[in-house]
């Protein structure tokens, strides 16, 4: 594993409310390049919201997110970015940060290969031919070499999620965000998807994984973030978290493991 100590993503004092409900309450977290971070915690603890703030699908109302020391929240005068130009610039960030969703969100009107090549053509500005070549290669990597021309309605949940993973990976992002990607899958399909993520973790890409699969989290992650009620309760290596003395962490883990 090519983990480094170079801080890659910095989350500083991040807060987010939906109405009067504080979903994220002053979150601080630094992720190093090549690090695999698993975010665990009870439902509604803000794990997914935190992940979605990282590619700005959800906007935090205060705090800051930096990638490689570049702030994507505040300008040089410390004011919050806003406006059309900023919205456009977010595309640049998002093309470097791949995301896979719980509900797959594959495009139903496009075949597997069309799903994967869309970003290559429209974001990376590749020709149709070279985009297709890469898209096929990526689908082969996730074991869908024989399904490239299938529409999603002919694919199982696991296969759809593989398409979604291939679609995100095709752009060769520097960071991958996995948002409970096995939660909508039939039990027998979970293992295969976790295997894909595990393989990816070994390639040295920076990853944040929100998951309820504790065994997987403790095996694959370098560090584990335990969240509860919008706050980070504890961050540590799998061993540290496993042996945590923090009562909330212990309560959560003993309920789950």
């Amino acid at each position: 594993m090519n983990r480094t100590t170079e801080s890659y993503i910095e989350i500083i004092n991040l807060s987010k409310s939906f109405g009067s409900h504080k979903v994220l309450d002053n979150i601080n977290l630094t992720v190093n390049r090549g690090e695999v971070v698993a975010i665990i915690g009870p439902s509604g603890s803000g794990k997914s919201t935190l992940l979605r703030c990282l590619n700005f699908l959800t906007r935090s109302e205060s705090g800051e997110i930096k990638f490689q020391n570049r702030s994507w929240s505040l300008n040089s005068e410390g004011k919050r970015y806003k406006g059309k130009k900023y919205e456009k610039s977010l595309s640049e960030l998002r093309s470097e940060v791949g995301m896979v969703f719980q509900n797959f969100n594959v495009f139903p009107h496009k075949t597997a290969v069309q799903n994967v090549e869309l970003g290559l053509i429209k974001v990376r500005k590749m020709t149709k031919n070279s985009a297709r070549e890469i898209a096929i290669k990526k689908l082969e990597q996730v074991g869908l070499g024989d399904k490239i021309n299938q529409y999603p309605d002919k694919l199982s949940g696991g296969q759809k999620q593989r398409v979604a993973i291939a679609r995100a990976l095709a752009l060769e992002p520097r960071v991958m965000l996995f948002d409970e990607v096995t939660s909508s899958l039939d039990p027998e399909l979970v293992g295969g998807i976790l295997e894909e993520i595990r393989r990816l973790a070994n390639t040295g890409i920076t990853m944040l994984v929100v998951t309820h699969e504790m065994g997987f989290a403790f095996q694959v992650a370098h560090r584990i973030v335990f969240m509860d009620s919008g706050k980070i309760v504890e961050v540590g290596t799998p061993d540290e978290i496993r042996n945590s003395q923090e009562p909330r962490t212990r309560a959560f883990l003993s309920a789950i493991l």
Partner: peptide, 12 residues
């Protein structure tokens, strides 16, 4: 989710 998946790819 469809729109988010598109935006997450970096599409305008």
């Amino acid at each position: 989710g469809q729109i988010e998946a598109g935006l997450a790819l970096g599409l305008s």
